[in-house]
Design a protein around this nucleic acid. Structure first.
Length: 456
RNA sequence: GUGGAUGUAGCUCAGUAGGUUAGAGUGCUGGAUUGUGGUUCCAGAGGUCGCCGGUUCGAACCCGGUCUUCCACCCCA
């Protein structure tokens, strides 16, 4: 043992306590996905690199984990390749597979590949880890879980509405206060059009996205640096100063985007979506946020993002509509919309607020003390009947000192201990000790099942 | 990918003008208490001071590199 064992940067082990808490999150999310009629799928951890590359922008390509080809990958490279190709490119030449970066792109691949077996609109959920070669920080890991729900094969805004309801239900169930931010890519496209730079939508939205952080002047400076014309920048300026309620902002944009067909379409979608929400208002704060852009470049319509109202950790859920995603895999004209919950960040938020249910850790209900072979043999059938009745029961595997066995029960937070020694065997009873109060009672095996069924 | 911090017992942390056997609390093991845990008392085990190298008679402490974790940027769940 020369070196202590370790795990790769940005990955984590999970203890039983952490697992109980993580499962609380997954179970809550899964339950709500199910009652909305979504169906589960899973896809492989690795995908062909060709399925992944170019789907997340240049930045995303850099963050993909690539899997080295087996065999003599050196033979794939000529001497010129080795000396002239940049190191980043070289990776893709000796690698044909990569770890998935999100669940949406593999889902699009799945839909195209299985299109004949699926019934559309197809509503699926998927809870699996994804990997990104990012530099780790708080709330940012290299391996983390996403919980995705998507509807594909329907353009109805009812789907967006349902996703908003799901978000609200999940965070209500988890006891978190959140802000849901809403925007529409068509509005952003309209803005780029109106200010005379339709080709620069990405640069413009990325800059606007930083409004809160770097301010109005910062945004304008960044756009100037990116080579946007003075004329366009001047036209954009009033938009950055826009204030007021969601309704007021939409009114303002209506005038601003008057000349843009796509912009109007975006506004209309936003308006209709908000109308749906009004029929059954959500508990969370729902606001229109022009500065919401979202990096993934396949979004084309509604985009949304959820942030904790109590802890600053980045977004804990996000998503949007994508009209062209399956087109990349050869299936045109299928629109989808979906969101992704970041389970690890939700965990961090709940942890920081100490808002996990108290008994999320409780597993074993009853421990039998081990007094020796004779007693053990007498106990074994009783263990069976307790477990058949759904009572989580353990027998201490060693004939250790009483104190040691009691300490075990105590540190495991097992609420009941059963004592069966010589006396108990003789009169057919079990001594049950309730750890919290220290009270003891003598029960028959049937009474024990009865007693613990009501206590668990 | 760029810049900046961090790393001492299982855990939380003390410990520098570089100088004998590196400390505390908590946890762990044993005993007081051979069928009764959480409180108390006593005793004990546990550290190549992240790793590698350098300076020095001598390094936990100074210097360089490396890894980890964290912070800012970038981006994002």
């Amino acid at each position: 043992m020369a070196n202590k064992p370790s795990i790769p940067k940005g990955t984590r082990d999970f203890s039983p306590l952490e697992m109980a808490r993580r499962n609380h999150i997954f179970d809550t999310i899964r339950r709500i996905f199910k009652v909305h009629g979504f169906l589960p799928i899973e896809t492989p951890a690795m995908e062909n690199l060709s399925s992944l590359m170019g789907k997340y922008g240049d930045e995303g390509d850099k963050l993909l984990f690539k899997i080295l080809n087996s065999g003599d990958f050196k033979a794939l490279l000529s001497p010129e390749d080795l000396s002239q190709t940049p190191a980043g490119k070289l990776g893709t030449m000796i690698s044909g597979k990569g770890l998935r970066y999100d669940l949406t792109v593999p889902f699009a691949r799945f839909v195209v590949q299985h299109r004949n077996e699926l019934t559309f609109p197809f509503k699926r959920y998927q809870i699996q880890p994804v990997w990104r070669a990012d530099r780790p920080q708080r709330g940012r890991y290299r391996e983390f879980y996403q919980c995705d729900v998507d509807v594909i094969g329907s353009t109805s805004l009812l789907n967006e509405f349902e996703l908003i309801q799901i978000i609200d239900e999940v965070f209500t169930a988890l006891g978190l206060k959140v802000v849901i931010k809403l925007n529409n890519r068509k509005v952003l496209a309209g803005i780029a059009e109106v200010i005379g730079a339709p080709e620069r939508m990405t640069d413009i939205t990325v800059a606007i996205d930083k409004l809160e952080k770097i301010g109005q002047e910062g945004v304008l400076a960044e756009l100037e640096q990116k080579g946007l014309s003075q004329d366009s920048i001047q036209k954009l300026d009033p938009l950055l100063l826009m204030e007021g309620s969601t309704q007021e902002k939409l009114e303002f944009l209506k005038k601003f985007l008057k000349a843009s067909e796509i912009g109007n379409e975006g506004l209309s979608e936003l308006g209709r979506l908000l109308d749906y929400v009004e029929t059954d208002p959500v508990g969370a704060d729902l606001e229109f946020d022009l500065t919401l852009a979202r990096g993934l470049n396949y979004y084309t319509g509604s985009i949304l993002e959820v942030k904790s109202a109590e802890v600053s950790i980045g977004s804990i859920c996000g998503g949007g509509r994508y009209d062209d995603l399956t087109g990349i895999f050869g299936l045109e004209g299928v629109s989808g919309v979906g969101i992704s919950f970041g389970a690890d960040r939700i965990y961090d938020v709940l942890n920081q607020l100490e808002r996990f249910p108290k008994r999320a850790t409780l597993d074993t209900t009853l421990l039998f003390v081990n007094f020796g072979e004779t007693e053990v043999k007498h106990i074994i059938p009783i263990l069976g009947s307790l477990r058949k009745n759904g009572i989580a029961t353990e027998l201490y595997p060693e004939q250790a000192k009483m104190k040691k066995q009691m300490t075990y029960a105590n540190s495991r937070e097992i609420p009941f201990v059963a004592l069966v020694g010589e006396q108990e065997i003789q009169d057919g009873h079990i001594t049950l000790k309730e750890m919290e109060t220290g009270k003891q009672e003598r029960l028959t095996p049937e009474e024990l099942v009865e007693r613990l069924s009501s206590a668990k």
